[in-house]
């Protein structure tokens, strides 16, 4: 089950500060299905729960390394799971609760590869893409600490 597109068309990685519309992105991705039978789209949102209400989140990033890491992750997923195409959008800068932060979309012939590909990219992205969250809430402001659970999630793909 090889890729039916050349690698340069099969991977798109976009870093942007502007908000994006997850529905529009999904529709656009699915519209160009290129014969694939399964598309998975994941959207990560700015969380604000009752026990830790957030007013504003700022994502700092290391632009050159972030672009490179995300492209590497997308390429690895493409090859490992035999995906047809992958698109990753990741924001940086200021954002607010309920806004999208990241969208990962994968297209494959059958569903399992698309699920696994999107899941794999998200697990790697959490620990190996150079972004740092700074949250401002009612109880002050702080850099978000990395979670052990994220390291464990990544390790399951080894």
């Amino acid at each position: 089950m090889g890729n039916i597109l050349s690698p340069k068309n099969a991977i798109v990685v976009k870093l942007q500060s502007e908000i994006f519309n997850p529905g529009d992105e999904s529709n656009q991705f699915i519209k160009q299905a290129d014969g694939g039978g399964a598309a998975v789209t994941f959207t990560g949102l700015v969380r604000s729960l009752a026990d830790n209400p957030i007013k504003k989140m700022t994502l700092e990033h290391y632009p050159a390394l972030a672009q490179k890491q995300l492209e590497n992750m997308a390429q690895t997923a493409l090859e490992r799971f035999g995906l047809i195409k992958v698109k990753v959008i990741h924001r940086y800068g200021a954002m607010y609760p309920n806004e999208p932060i990241v969208q990962v979309m994968s297209l494959s012939a059958h569903r399992q590869a698309a699920f696994d590909g999107a899941n794999f990219i998200m697990d790697w992205l959490k620990t190996d893409a150079p972004f740092w969250k700074f949250e401002e809430g009612e109880n002050g402001a702080e850099w978000v600490a990395a979670k052990t659970v994220d390291d464990n999630a990544k390790d399951k793909w080894k």
């Binding site: 994502l59 990033h61 932060i101 992205l125 959490k126 620990t127 893409a129 150079p130 972004f131 969250k133």
Partner: peptide, 10 residues
């Protein structure tokens, strides 16, 4: 060379 804390994106 770049130095930074553990990453927290996504």
């Amino acid at each position: 060379v770049a130095f930074f804390p553990p990453m927290t994106g996504g």
